[in-house]
Each structure stands twice: as structure tokens, then as C-alpha cells.
């Protein structure tokens, strides 16, 4: 897929992380992570399962607190925000969950309305309907509007999950394993959707994955998380040209197997 030249502002990091550490009990997951994510770019965080990729984006969105270090999102230090300020920041940071996390007691329409109604209480019914239909159309699933999540396929659920985050028009998108558990064709569709979202909504994104095809298709830059730190960063080709044995084994496992 040929992508248009992206406007990445290298002087304007929207996410800046320094010396981030996180442990769960006696297990130290993140051990001094440093990272800058620039406005307009898609950054892919690669790494094996259990290396703390999801923990990293949960800290960025304020779902988890860091043990040490600084996490600055859109100019605000996340750990120091009060509850109300954190809520306001979250309106600008969309989070697409690995298992979509759709509210299973609500229809697709209600799932999409939920964040909108709660955060824009003065909207008229017609405006809500227009917004819901607009984002559903953007992910190509307008026909599922009255369905329950249990009636959707895995790929459709991922798309609806993405649509639910888009409805608040976030500046930053955090994708947690967007292609996990999907067939190769649906993976390609999701990769294309991630690129379309960036193009249409001008978002900055962090994409957590261990799928190298997803990384190659969606990432402007790749950062590889190894042993609790970013071992190497760069374009897909730069990262996998590295002679680091851990990086090579990751590449070989994905493409040789």
C-alpha cells in the first residue's frame, strides 16, 4: 500500500516518557523506559508477550500509575493530574482494547453513544445519531448499528471498538494488539483502517503489537521493547537490520515460522 507523505512534526512530541519504571509485586516490567512520540506519527511498539507493552499504554492513558519516571502527554504530567484533569485528558486520548471491550449489554449504537452522551450532555438526539452514523461509516460497519456485540465477528468488534474511541475525536490513539486473534485478511483490513484513521482524523498513534506485518504496514517508526527498555528504535528496515540477537530472533520467529 502506497501511503501519502505524512506530516510528522519532529519538534513537537505529544508524548514524552523519561525513566519510566513499573513493577507488579516482585516482577519488574518496565525498567527505565525513554520514549518520544511526535505529532502525526504512528509509532509501533514491538515486543514479546509479557514485556510490558500494554502496561506502557495503560500508564500513558492513566489506567496505571508509574512507580518512577515521568510520563508527559499533550504537555501534562499524567501521574500528577487530578481526577477531573485526567478525565479531560482522556477525551483527547483514545484507547482501543485488545479484546475490543465493547459493553456487551448494549447494542452497537448504545456502545458508541455512551462516551458521547456522557461527555457532551447538551447534544440533541439528531446530533448524537449523526455522530454515531458518521464514525460507523468511517469504519465501514453502518449496517451493524442495531446489533449486539455478541452477534459480531472478531474483526467487526475491533472496528466498533476503534469507532467508539473515534467518536470523541481524540488527538492520540492507543491501539493494544489491534490484529491479535484475527485472520490474515481481516488483519490487512485493520492495518488499512489504522492508516485511514490517521489520515482522516489526523491522529498520533501508538500501536502495540507483536505482528510484524502490522508493524510494517502501519508504523512510521518502530520501537522494540526488550527486557523492560527500548533496545532499538527506527524505521522497520533500520530496526531489523540490527545485529542484536534478540531483535533477529524476533524477526526470524515471525517470518521464518
Amino acid at each position: 500500500m502506497i501511503q501519502a507523505e505524512k506530516a510528522i512534526d519532529k519538534n513537537n512530541p505529544v508524548i514524552s516518557i523519561r525513566g519510566l519504571q513499573k513493577a507488579f509485586g516482585s516482577l519488574h516490567i518496565l525498567r527505565g523506559v525513554d520514549l518520544d512520540v511526535y505529532k502525526g506519527e504512528n509509532l509501533v511498539v514491538l515486543g514479546r508477550s509479557g514485556t510490558g507493552k500494554s502496561v506502557l499504554i495503560k500508564i500513558i492513558s492513566g489506567l496505571l500509575l508509574p512507580d518512577q519516571g515521568m510520563v508527559n502527554v499533550l504537555g501534562q504530567e499524567v501521574a500528577e493530574l487530578r481526577s477531573r484533569e485526567l478525565m479531560e485528558l482522556r477525551l483527547k486520548v483514545g484507547f482501543s482494547f485488545q479484546n475490543s471491550a465493547l459493553y456487551d449489554s448494549m447494542t452497537v449504537r448504545e456502545n458508541l453513544e455512551f462516551p458521547l452522551v456522557r461527555n457532551s450532555r447538551n447534544l440533541k438526539r439528531s446530533q448524537i445519531n449523526d455522530e454515531v452514523e458518521s464514525v460507523l461509516d468511517a469504519v465501514g460497519l453502518l449496517q451493524t448499528i442495531e446489533q449486539m456485540p455478541s452477534e459480531l465477528s472478531g474483526g467487526q468488534r475491533k472496528r466498533i471498538g476503534i469507532a467508539r474511541t473515534l467518536i470523541l475525536r481524540p488527538e492520540i490513539m492507543l491501539y493494544d494488539e489491534p490484529t491479535a486473534g484475527l485472520d490474515p485478511i481481516t488483519c490487512i483490513e485493520i492495518n488499512n483502517l489504522i492508516n485511514e484513521v490517521q489520515e482522516k482524523y489526523k491522529t498520533t498513534a501508538i500501536i502495540i503489537t507483536h505482528d510484524l506485518t502490522c508493524a510494517k504496514e502501519t508504523g512510521d517508526r518502530i520501537a522494540m521493547l526488550l527486557d523492560g527498555q527500548f533496545a532499538i528504535q527506527g524505521t522497520f528496515e533500520e530496526v531489523f537490520a540490527s545485529e542484536d540477537a534478540r531483535v533477529q530472533s524476533f524477526y526470524n520467529y515471525n517470518f521464518t515460522k
Binding site: K58, M87, L91, F95, D104, F114, R118
Partner: peptide
């Protein structure tokens, strides 16, 4: 069930308490 399927986290990140 909402907790283990991350629906509670989903509410939180969509700025709902």
C-alpha cells in the same frame, strides 16, 4: 465480567467515572 473483559477500563478511558 466487566472487569475481566476490560469494559470497566474502557469506561474509564472514555472519560466516564
Amino acid at each position: 465480567s466487566m472487569k475481566v473483559t476490560e469494559q470497566i477500563d474502557a469506561m474509564e478511558v472514555s472519560a466516564t467515572n
